[in-house]
Design a protein around this nucleic acid. Sequence first.
DNA 1: ATTTGGTTTAACCAATTGGTCAAAGATAGA
DNA 2: TCTATCTTTGACCAATTGGTTAAACCAAAT
Lengths: 206, 206
Amino acid sequence: MSDKEKINTEEKILEAAKEVFTEEGKAGTKMQMIADRAGINKSLLHYYYRSKDKLFASVFKFAFGKMASKIFPIFENDDHFLTQLEQFIENYLSFLVKNPFIPMFILSELNKKHNNIAAELIINSDVNIDLFDAIVKKEIQKGTIKKSIKAKNLLINILTLCVFPVIAKPIIVPVVFNNDSDAYNNYMKNRKDEIIEIVFDMIRVE
Amino acid sequence: MSDKEKINTEEKILEAAKEVFTEEGKAGTKMQMIADRAGINKSLLHYYYRSKDKLFASVFKFAFGKMASKIFPIFENDDHFLTQLEQFIENYLSFLVKNPFIPMFILSELNKKHNNIAAELIINSDVNIDLFDAIVKKEIQKGTIKKSIKAKNLLINILTLCVFPVIAKPIIVPVVFNNDSDAYNNYMKNRKDEIIEIVFDMIRVE
DNA sequence: ATTTGGTTTAACCAATTGGTCAAAGATAGA
DNA sequence: TCTATCTTTGACCAATTGGTTAAACCAAAT
């Protein structure tokens, strides 16, 4: 076993767990799969993470945290609002394309009814949209965006337009693009400009 | 056992299977859960549906078919295009609110990597968007909508705006609406008008 | 009344799965 | 070198799970 492979088994496990959990969901993930992916023994899994539930909780927290950290700090600089919006959409979209399974994983787990650990974890997270709320109010006062804009609705719409085409890829490729993956990739390449146009139209003062 | 309860065990099973599979996903669903929900013996399940895979295939086909049947035939009448759009959005949105688990179920299963029966079923489905493509082209020729509109993009955007707020409910309610479910319900009540405004803005000739 | 067909059940089975344990290996300090 | 601690492993376990089977049940036709 080489040095680089040996270093930090715990991290190797977490990395493997992230992959398998996000690909297969909690119920679809077997501890043996994670052990195989990490190249270790199943017992070693339980040595570092005492139970599947605990390991899942770690992975879910990480995934949700990564998602949240991409969404919320972006409006904390002093750029013009429209610039901030554009930066956010570009940044978020490239994150999604690089991590297409994370949003599906989060949404899928949260929508389960039986023994839903994920839902409990969300309640204790202190994520909120107060900052975005405040920014939108200020912009309205400054007259840079339409008065009727509601911050909550705007945020949901932006996230919607970014996330959905990524999680719906397995249905868009066959049904919309006749199984032409290149057509889908091309569509996603232009997606940023499309979203920006839609969003700017939504908030533009008339 | 009353007459009404006795009639058609097979249908009772399928009904229970639809519920449990859509709520818990394929891997999260246990045959015993379905038997319990249907009020029957587990053996009886296998008497009517020989395996979990077969039963899952039936349920997935049904769910996807129901989804597709709500989306595609709506543009087959002779109404004005904008009227058709409005009717579709209203109709589709009310379907989603009544069946919030169906889209999540379909998307979640299609995104699985391991032993994905759902993905195989989609390939064999002959659903396509040729009709919508043709309609949009005709409207562009008539000059009723913007020339730069691409049918595929428009359709994805409409579906996006309808579906996402439904499947993201468990994250929207705590993060956006501070756990106020009424605020979410109110938001969804106004969603139709919001989507129509966005979509009409997208296609309006300038 | 008996037979015939489909329906329902309990008992059972083999494989899988999450998890434990004691022993072996490795590692670093005394 | 010896020892104490941490890491890794294979053997094992109990519970769960998808699935089978033979027998019981039941309604309708003979």
